[in-house]
Design a protein around this nucleic acid. Structure first.
Lengths: 335, 335
DNA sequence: AGCAGTAGATGCATCGTTAAATCAGATGGA
DNA sequence: TCCATCTGATTTAACGATGCATCTACTGCT
């Protein structure tokens, strides 16, 4: 492996000079001639700095860890792409892990943060790790990605879910729907609660009634949507439209409608929160609400980088591009 | 941050002893009393070794990079879980990246391998990086995950796709199907070619004919399946069953059948290669073939760890648990 | 008693990089 | 002419962990 010393020897200068040329130190001045020669030799010898040595010296790893609930979920994949692009732009490399791997009893967090392997954490996860972090006794930064249990502790980088839900609801009322159900979203989670608020606001502003029996908080699995839909659609008067808090959940809703012989979109319009690729391939194809997930990831990593480099705690709402309805086959004018 | 030296001072011994106690050096002997005291103090002070220093000294990072075609794909997620579990067992931490980020013009590979950030690469990707690797001039190891363009260069860890396709085909013939189509799989990729071989073998062994016009290599997107199915099902005599090389592609096939008014499974049975969660939520639910993807990942990382620790190049076929048909609603007895 | 052998430890160099202190000449002003 | 200043470098000291060479008692044997 080529080291700084090898380069220095070949260039006939000291290692400090080479280091200074490459990093622009202020304590060491170099002449243009030396600079050129060093850079040429660095190129010739294909010198790449040793990361471990750099990391040891600077007490900084250049690595950040992203924690997501689950791999293999398209919406997170989009966010991760944003994170990775921002990471590249800010000079970091991303480690990914699923939330369940980072539980207190696992030693992964300890390994990552404690050993100084990562400089910061991007959390899209209910965990906050307060205690673990303290015990790590180490400088580290954390950015929460669109996640917090309450408005006050939310911190980090958020999406504007209130606005998202309003856009989706307005789209439905614009089609003439008045009897609209809201399915999904855990109570007590900020992002989910905000959607409910946006939904209620939009209906109220339009002069429509919110039927409490049609506001149905459930999990995000398709199964959850299936069961909720069967329950809601099995009642006396049915809603003519459903805003489903999660598109994955919405595929379950579509399944339930199919099984109950309810035609979508003729008898029931369904819109799924979050645009996913699978929406193109359900029958009917699912109309969705697209949120700026890529931008969330990008902003999150940018914020983290700023935080690591001595910046203060971030609190930002990513609101651009605006929430947008992707119209497919599951929505139509109210019957 | 607590260092070895802090521990040594508190314990009244030299740093060498603490290091020896923790790592079991053969050059340094320690008494039981000292060992106990050191371990107690290590625990008390919550000492965690500094990763950068260790990595510098040992010329080993304890990081491996996994390269997958795309994030957000459930089948890879399963494989990644296997990789991460094996990584934990072998003492490594995983960095993940999408294949397109590691193209020659990007400097990510250079950053990861060249700077010594990772000790090895797990590649589920068409790239082999021969040239880049050479220029990196560094000790590194690579394991290909179920991927190679030919049988000879495949290397790494593979799934037994010939067997998988046989199992799926046998399942269909067992239901009385004789006119079976094979949709999907790129020509020239070992894994895909093997599936075609298995399909042909199974049909031949059962005394059934392979209709070449029904063997249709296409991409893996749902759209590809949709188009292929329209073409095949639009002909004169139709197959009564389809083995689709990829379950994602199969969702497109289901869409095409629905649009053409062909009832599944009454008129057409569809089985998708690879079990994915979404299979539960198409209508009808998709019968799939489950391959041991978790085990593939686990074996891959285990092989990589062995390779890094001085072992030789691995060439292994992961065949356990055996391929298994997950019966859902898209397959039935032949009409 | 004298010496070998061994248990149990210590000290020091080293990995590659960077920050700071230091140094050798050249230049300039009084 | 002599000191101050500036340029362009060099030297030195870390960062934290590890492994080898070395050192000191002490035990046991003849």
């Amino acid at each position: 492996m080529t080291t700084l010393r090898d380069v220095a020897e070949r260039a006939g200068v000291s290692v400090s000079v080479v280091s200074a040329v490459l990093n622009g130190s202020k304590h060491v001045r170099t002449s243009a001639a030396v600079r050129d020669r060093v850079l040429r030799i660095v190129d010739e010898m294909q010198y790449v700095p040793n990361h471990a040595a750099r990391s040891l010296r600077l007490a900084k790893s250049g690595l950040v860890a992203g924690v997501i609930p689950q791999l293999g979920i398209p919406v997170y994949a989009e966010m991760l792409r944003g994170i990775q692009d921002a990471a590249e732009a800010t000079g970091y490399v991303l480690i990914l892990t699923e939330a369940n791997r980072i539980l207190p009893e696992s030693n992964l967090l300890r390994k990552l943060v404690g050993e100084g392997r990562v400089d910061g954490l991007l959390l899209r996860s209910p965990h906050t790790f307060e205690m673990d972090m303290k015990s790590a006794k180490r400088q580290y930064s954390v950015v929460q990605l669109d996640h917090g249990k309450t408005a006050t502790d939310r911190g980090g980088v958020q999406l504007n879910h209130r606005r998202g839900a309003r856009v989706a609801t307005d789209y439905l009322t614009g089609l003439g729907h008045e009897r609209i159900a809201f399915v999904g979203g855990t109570i007590g989670y900020f992002a989910d609660d905000e959607r409910r608020v946006g939904f209620r606001e939009a209906l109220a502003d339009g002069g429509h009634e919110v039927r409490e029996e049609w506001v149905c908080p459930v999990g995000f699995a398709p199964k959850d949507g299936y069961e909720a839909a069967r329950s809601i659609l099995g009642g006396g008067q049915r809603p003519t439209a459903m805003l489903v808090s999660n598109s994955t959940t919405a595929t379950g809703v579509l399944g339930a409608a199919a099984d109950m012989g309810i035609r979508v979109p003729e008898e029931l319009s369904v819109i799924g929160y979050h645009d996913i690729e699978a929406a193109d391939f359900t029958r009917p194809a699912l109309t969705t609400l697209k949120m700026p997930f890529y931008e969330l990831g990008y902003a999150g990593q940018s914020a983290l980088a700023a935080m690591i480099d001595g910046g203060a705690r971030v609190d930002e709402v990513v609101d651009d591009p605006a929430p947008r309805v992707i119209v497919r086959g599951s929505t139509a004018e109210a019957p």
